[in-house]
Write a protein that binds this DNA or RNA. Structure first.
Length: 1154
RNA sequence: GGGCGGGUAGCUCAGUUGGCUAGAGCACUCGCUUUACACGCGAGGGGUCCAGGGUUCGAGUCCCUGCCUGCCCA
């Protein structure tokens, strides 16, 4: 073995060995044939948007540890790898890139219609290919034992089929539908976002109080819903209000026009106001009933309405405990088009909805606002500009009553970070509030992790609670539960190009007023629609069967806002081809051009009968496809199913050449555990649970209620979040991230992995102080920190070399903030963390320990060793016992997902027990003791196995050397040989029988450790040279005991005790106690250092005095002796006696010193 | 505003159902080129366990209040 372990010399070769042996390839058929138990993990697919960061390294290291442990335990282990297309994120990144490289924006591509879209998607595809390779490479370099042959991508053919089928089934079940609703609109990326893609941020804004003049409505406009232009509206005066009994009206000039004051943080939305609301209990309500206000400049006359939602001011009887009551004026401007609450009020009062903005959130009269009046000056302005202008105009007219600073939280896009605009648009929704989704997810939880107050009771014992979904650490179960209790319908359409396109083709036409599709139908009510739909689908069904797409087409029909709509969903690409049956070659008439069997043509005509009622309608199958794509999480939600070939594993097998695809789902779903971050509980975990259960409910049990199918995984382990040394999230903009590849380069993959496991405790997030590598010296140092504009602690942009202050460097923050650019004089300093040294040191320690152990194993060892053999000494028995204890502790830690405990156990076993004690003890004896060599042999072997899941590379390399030795075994310790290519990663997990544990030996050995430490302490106090042999003076009894235990050699080796005598020292000596025994060491040096001895004794006496006082104090407490458990009281008494004896010895020794 | 964490040595963290004088690594001090390892070995110093109150024979641990801090949700 080389003297030094250099990771880079081995890592590639080891990895190639694993791959050549297909060591990580899982065989589902072994599971189905009952030859092995399954263990499966699905990778949370990393986004193809960027390279992996340290958080990914942690997440994947922990998964790999689990996978490797279980593989060694004999489970058929599948770790399924893959990547996620990450719609909005990837598209945004590529848009920026294309803009920079080609100078073209997405709008430029959009001008070429579908072709431009395809060209743009091609560029994203290329980007994806590049990053997918990069991510895969990173995972491999970390040592991830994924089944690489099965790698998937959320948009590949296999996954796409799952998305199609899932959408189709939900669509058919009525759980996916289209609706015009207020969505969270991101005006920069110009797409809708789901609720959980919106981040609330506190901002410093203003509360503006605006006055709206009161009027009587004029003659124009009959119904309350229509809005009148302002010309003939008549002002309402304060006098009139006084007459109507308006409280306080007489405080205003009587013949002046009266007003009401509304308060808002967004004055510009007044352009879209369609009412002013007040609480019906407001004492002013009666006087204002039937009156209107006229919106300044716009001139729109809108009603004053009454709604319970409006908060009354505290002065007028509002709820004093509601903080809003202190700000409230009692009047609420209602803008249904741009505020979710106002939207609800609008629905209750059937108010018109006016959209005053373009998709980029600039004020626009082109998107549903057509009574601009004198408000032209705002058109074309951004939200922010318009806000300033509106305030200025109100102020100029005296309509601005007040402007006060106001801190409030505003939703921001998680992607573009601009404020979300509530925006009215057509979107697709999944009705996750349905009991078969939300309710089923809640019922899936393990019983004891659920809280009380059960609104979704478990039904019919479909699932036993002990099989339920379980969270580690368990506190996260609550996050999952409350999320589902408060869930709202899930908006799944995104106005993007990168993603799974919604498989719906639509026909839309305006019906002439008062016409009905079938004259004999009473009304275009729901009944009528559903009858139409049933008939339509019946005809569609026949047609689909005739063209070989049975069951793959389904239509939803509805009348909306006077439009006549048919949405047809195609479950497969084959079925999708029907939408190209027609062409319009001359631009006027649709023609059927495709070849169809006569029966199919007849069936097609039957469908057309129902869609050609109106001449403006195109033939049904020339309908236009929905332009939107699905939310990325929709395909992620299917990951447990899609990666295993659902819904058509044979097709997946054909497409990929992976013949055993059909066995995957039956063998590995549900998987064992999902390892992910806590922010993903809502975004992903929830949706996987809902979908996996919903889509497997029939396979689970034909009698199961809807949505009560299988879980996607039994356990969810939430890994901690890595933060920098100041508790801040690592991010590119703060320049405080550490690149895992840098650490692999500088410390090795094993070191990276070890440290990530070691810091993964279950209680806290991980603080990893970030250091810099000086590019001039290569040394690591802690940088100087400054606060950035947001008050975050970041490394100063420029740092000095600690060794030479004239040399400077640029930090990642300096680069990211654009303040400095690296140059030859100012090189970029890489981020690192001194924490990773722990892992590197540990790997080195293992390497050296193994090298040394192997050097002692050149002679054969006892082939089959009985641990009770008389050839074994105390230390040997002790080592075996410690090993067995560590195996148990590691097994428990792994089962509890306590990675830090696991790392700590193997650290102590190798470093403290094996290296510090055992190796030192056997150094002089192993050469002529074959039994001891057997212990060395199995201990090293077992430790390599225990360490392998955390540090796979270094252990695999060492194992190659162990493999050349003749085998040795110890009874009670199972170390099964590798089942493939002699690889450690395929070797058996160590199993120790309880008989290997020996409590008596462990406590005896602990006593010897104490004795040795006591002697070493005296030596150190007296500055005795480490190699100077000394003499130990003990009682006859202790001497006999030491001899019986056979530890004389150990004392020589570890404490430098050359002679042991039973007579007191003749000359100068240092006395000390060992339990109740009085011992001394002599021959320390030519002369004893009296001062050193004195100060040692002083400290000892002080310590002992403290102990005696504490112990006797406890015993003096009357309650203690009476109430504490008897054995504890006895222990205290014994302890006190010991301490008193030691004290006496120390005092006597002190007196001798004079 | 609601929920969940955290506050223990200079730093990063352990501390199981309350029970020996509260532990580890790094950093620090002293000694050691001891034939595996200086990325090492041996020894040592360093802690009002955030504050206040309570329960208890006994509280870092349980309860209450407050302060600081992080995350999630509204």
């Amino acid at each position: 073995m080389p003297k030094q372990f250099r990771p880079r010399d081995h890592e590639d070769r080891v990895r190639q060995g694993w791959e050549a042996a297909r060591a990580f390839h899982a065989d589902p058929d072994r599971v189905l044939e009952g030859r092995a138990k399954p263990y499966a993990i699905l990778i949370p697919p990393p986004n193809v948007t960027a390279a992996l960061h340290l958080g990914h390294a942690l997440n994947n290291t922990l998964q790999d540890v689990l996978a490797r442990v279980h593989r060694m335990k004999g489970y058929e282990t599948l770790w399924m790898p893959g990547t996620d297309h990450a719609g909005i994120a990837t598209q945004t990144v590529v848009e920026k890139r294309v803009k920079a490289l080609e100078g073209k924006s997405r709008a430029d591509f959009a001008q070429d219609g579908e072709r431009g879209r395809a060209a743009f998607v091609e560029r994203i595809q290329a980007f994806k290919d590049e990053y997918e390779v990069r991510i895969t490479e990173q995972l491999k370099r970390m040592g991830c034992s994924c089944d690489w042959e099965r790698q998937r991508f959320t948009m590949d053919e296999v996954c796409a089929r799952a998305v199609r089928e899932a959408f189709f089934q939900l669509f058919k079940a009525g759980l996916i539908s289209r609706g015009k609703r207020l969505v969270n609109w991101d005006p920069v990326t110009q797409t809708a976002l789901a609720d959980d893609e919106v981040e609330m941020e506190e901002i410093e804004g203003f509360f503006y109080s605006l006055r709206y003049p009161l009027v009587h409505r004029g003659s124009v406009g009959a119904g309350q819903q229509s809005l009148a232009a302002g010309e003939d509206a008549m002002p309402v005066t304060w006098n009139e209000l006084a007459v109507r009994g308006y409280p306080g009206a007489d405080e205003h000039p009587g013949d002046a026009q009266a007003w009401v004051t509304v308060a808002t943080t967004r004055p510009e939305t007044y352009l879209g106001d369609t009412a002013v609301a007040m609480n019906p209990k407001d004492p002013r309500a009666k006087a204002l009933r039937g009156l209107f206000v006229e919106l300044p400049l716009v001139g729109r006359v809108i009603p004053v309405i009454e709604d319970d939602y409006v908060v009354m001011p505290e002065a007028l009887g509002g709820d004093a405990s509601d903080p809003k009551a202190q700000f409230a004026t009692g009047f609420l401007k209602v803008t249904p088009g741009h505020d979710p609450n106002d939207y609800e009020i609008g629905r209750r009062h059937e108010l018109p909805i006016i959209n005053i903005m373009a998709p980029d959130a600039s004020i626009s009269d082109q998107h549903g606002w057509n009574d601009v009046g004198n408000a032209h000056l705002f058109v074309g302005k951004s939200r922010e500009e318009a806000r300033m202008l509106v305030v200025r105009e109100f102020e100029a007219r005296g309509w601005l009553e007040r402007k006060s600073p106001y801190r409030h939280s505003v939703g921001h896009s998680y992607r573009s970070h601009v404020p979300i605009e509530p925006y009215l648009s057509d979107q697709w929704y999944v009705k996750v509030t349905d009991d078969s989704l939300r309710g089923a997810a809640l019922r899936a939880m393990a019983g004891e992790q659920r809280s009380g107050g059960d609104a979704h009771p478990t039904g019919g014992g479909v699932e036993k609670t002990e099989d339920g979904l379980r969270f580690f650490p368990e506190r996260y179960a609550k996050t999952f539960e409350t999320w589902h209790e408060n869930i709202r319908d899930w908006c799944i359409s995104r106005q993007l190009w990168w993603g799974h396109r919604i498989p719906v083709w639509s026909l839309r036409a305006e019906l002439p007023p008062d016409t009905l599709p079938f004259p004999d139908w009473p009304d275009p009510s729901d009944v009528g629609v559903s009858e139409f739909e049933t008939e339509y689908n019946e005809r569609l069904r026949k047609f689909a069967a005739l063209i070989g797409c049975a069951g793959q087409l389904y239509a939803k029909c509805e009348w909306r806002e006077g439009d006549y709509c048919i949405d047809v969903c195609a479950a497969t690409e084959e079925a999708e081809r029907v939408f190209t049956l027609y062409s319009k070659p001359d631009g006027s008439t649709w023609q059927l051009h495709a070849h169809l069997e006569p029966d199919a043509i007849v069936a097609l005509r039957r469908i057309e009968e129902m869609t050609r009622l109106n001449e403006s309608l195109d033939p049904v199958f020339s309908a236009t496809r929905d332009p939107d794509v699905l939310d990325t999480w929709f395909s992620s939600a299917l990951w447990p199913l899609s990666t295993m070939g659902w819904p058509d594993a044979d097709a997946a097998a054909n497409a990929t050449g992976i013949a055993d695809f059909p066995s995957l789902l039956p063998a590995f779903n549900p998987t064992n555990v999902l390892v992910t971050g806590r922010d993903i509980i809502t975004l992903w975990v929830s949706r996987m649970v809902m979908f996996n259960r919903w889509f497997t409910d029939q396979q689970q049990n034909p009698a199961a209620r809807q949505g009560e199918g299988r879980l996607p995984f039994h356990h969810v382990y939430i890994n901690p979040i890595i933060q920098d040394g100041h508790g801040q999230r690592m991010s590119k903009s703060l320049g405080n991230g550490v690149d895992p590849l840098d650490i692999i380069e500088s410390h090795g993959a094993d070191a990276l992995r070890y440290v990530l496991c070691q810091v993964a405790t279950s209680t806290q997030d991980i603080r990893l102080p970030v250091d810099l590598v000086c590019p001039h010296t290569g040394k690591t140092f802690s940088p100087k920190f400054i606060r950035n504009s947001q008050g975050r602690l970041v490394p100063a942009p420029i740092q000095e070399c600690p060794a030479d202050p004239t040399k400077k460097m640029v930090t990642a923050f300096g680069l990211a903030s654009g303040q400095v650019k690296p140059s030859p004089e100012l090189p970029l300093a890489r981020n690192t963390s001194a924490k990773f040294d722990i892992g590197r040191n540990f790997a080195t320690k293992l390497w050296n320990a193994a090298r040394f152990t192997l050097s002692m194993l050149t002679e054969p060892a006892t082939p089959v060793l009985d641990p009770a053999s008389p050839d074994l000494g105390v230390a040997d028995r002790w080592m075996l016992s410690r090993l067995a204890a560590a195996i148990d502790a590691v097994d428990v830690a792994v089962a509890r997902y306590e990675f830090s405990v696991y790392a700590g156990q193997v650290y102590d076993l190798l470093w403290r027990d094996f290296c510090d004690w055992y190796l030192e003890i056997v150094k002089p004896t192993a050469a002529h003791n074959p039994a001891q060599r057997a212990v060395l042999r199995v201990a090293l072997d077992a430790m390599l196995r225990l360490l392998h899941p955390i540090m796979p590379f270094v252990t695999e390399v060492i194992y190659e050397h162990i493999g050349t030795l003749p085998t040795a075994s110890v009874q009670g310790l199972s170390l099964d040989a590798p089942d493939r290519a002699g690889l450690l990663c395929r070797a058996g997990w160590p199993r120790a029988e309880a008989s290997l544990r020996d409590q008596a030996i462990e406590s005896t050995f602990a006593r010897m450790q104490e004795l040795i430490t006591a002697i070493r302490e005296v030596r150190a106090q007296h500055q005795v040279h480490p190699r100077r042999p000394i003499t130990l003076h003990v009682s006859i009894e202790l001497h006999a005991e030491l001899r019986a235990l056979g530890v004389m050699e150990m004392l020589r080796t570890l404490a430098g005790v050359e002679r042991i005598e039973t007579v007191p020292p003749a000359g100068q000596a240092a006395e000390f106690t060992f339990g109740p025994q009085r011992l001394a060491v002599s021959n320390l040096a030519d002369a004893i250092d009296a001062e050193a001895e004195k100060s040692r004794l002083e400290k000892l006496i002080a310590d002992l005095n403290k102990s005696v006082a504490a112990l006797s104090g406890r015993l003096a407490n009357p309650g203690y002796a009476q109430r504490a458990p008897a054995h504890l009281v006895q222990e205290t008494r014994d302890e006190l006696e010991r301490k008193k004896a030691e004290l006496a010895v120390a005092i006597e020794a002190m007196e001798k010193q004079g």
